[in-house]
Computed example of a mutant assay.
Amino acid sequence: MFVPEVLQSVSDRTADHPRIRCTATWSSDSEGRWSLPFVAILSSAPTEFFSAKTAWYVVFVPRTKSVTVYPAMVGGISVTFQHQSFNSEGSASLPWRLGNPCLDRPAGALGRASWNGQPDAIDDKIVWYLERLLIWIDAAATGELAIEGEPLELPPGPGQTNFPVVGFVGAGDDLAFWRGRTNDWGWVDLAKLPGAKISYAMTTFRDRQSAPIRKSVWGRAIAEAAPAKTGLWIALDNLPVQAPWELPRTWADLSAHLETQGVQLAEVFELAGADRRRRKDDRGTVTLFLGFPIAELVGGTPRSTTGSL
């Protein structure tokens, strides 16, 4: 296969790189993408989540001139770190996973000066991404991707295009109120936003017996809307994240993690299910909400609460 000169230049420039080993030549697929498999070598000691050598693919799309680096399906990392997309498996035809590290944003761990110097030439740009990856894997392996004082990024999850959008509004005393209910659970009314298809607003929080305990202050259009759906809320001590930085992927993972916070998910579902079967105003599917205190900055003090579907 003929490899464009500009891409061959990348291979030539990395041939003697001390930390990059190309394992094959560039190849293109039916979608016009060019990809190059390589192995990146840590400059630090291997860890539980990072071996000394990990396999990757750098992918170049000529039409958009975009460059993305993905973990390889074989020999690549399978977990998700900070500053990385949710690292799920992609199409069976792809040799890489979908968890591309975020290399083109000015994360403190990657150096803002080097971010500002991103080159325009295609071969320079691809090499620049490879060098940024080396910085990223070192920071990931040593737990230094999240710098204290930087904005906190919630862990990424799988695509949720088929899920409803649910909005909530907070009050000044939310944190104190919900901390008083840690490990508790109950119900929440969801009002459908006027004119929207699958967008809702949380209006009234209820205890296990459906008695109102907290009302959200919305505008008239939402405040006067009748509940269209019901949600199940669980109040947690902290963000339900698994090491290194990903949401639980399965119900079993979620159940095991919540158990470490003192929540027996199976018991909650059993009691909630029994309650729903007794009701006469069942409004269909129940959406689960996990609420937890959260800080705006890494290492900061929580000032508000948020939730995850």
Rank of each mutant, 00 (worst) to 15 (best):
E246A: 04
G231T: 02
V169N: 11
N183A: 15
D174R: 00
R208E: 11
I213F: 03
V188L: 10
R214D: 07
P194E: 02
A256I: 02
R181H: 15
P227D: 04
I198T: 14
I234K: 11
A176K: 15
R220H: 10
A256M: 04
A211R: 14
K229I: 07
V217Q: 11
A221R: 14
R206Y: 00
W251K: 13
I234S: 09
L239T: 04
A228T: 11
L175K: 06
S255T: 15
M202N: 05
Y200R: 00
E246Y: 01
K229A: 15
E224M: 11
T230D: 13
T182Q: 15
L232G: 07
K229P: 06
G195L: 09
P194N: 06
K192L: 15
L236E: 08
T230I: 12
L232H: 11
W187N: 01
R220W: 03
F205E: 01
D237S: 11
A223Q: 14
W245T: 00
P194S: 02
L190C: 08
N238D: 14
A243F: 08
R208F: 03
A256V: 06
W185A: 01
G195R: 14
P248A: 06
D173C: 05
R181L: 07
W251C: 05
W245L: 03
H257S: 08
T204E: 04
L239C: 08
Q242P: 02
W178P: 01
R249K: 14
T182S: 08
H257T: 04
V188D: 00
Q209C: 08
P227L: 03
L254M: 12
D253H: 11
A235F: 06
D189K: 10
K229V: 12
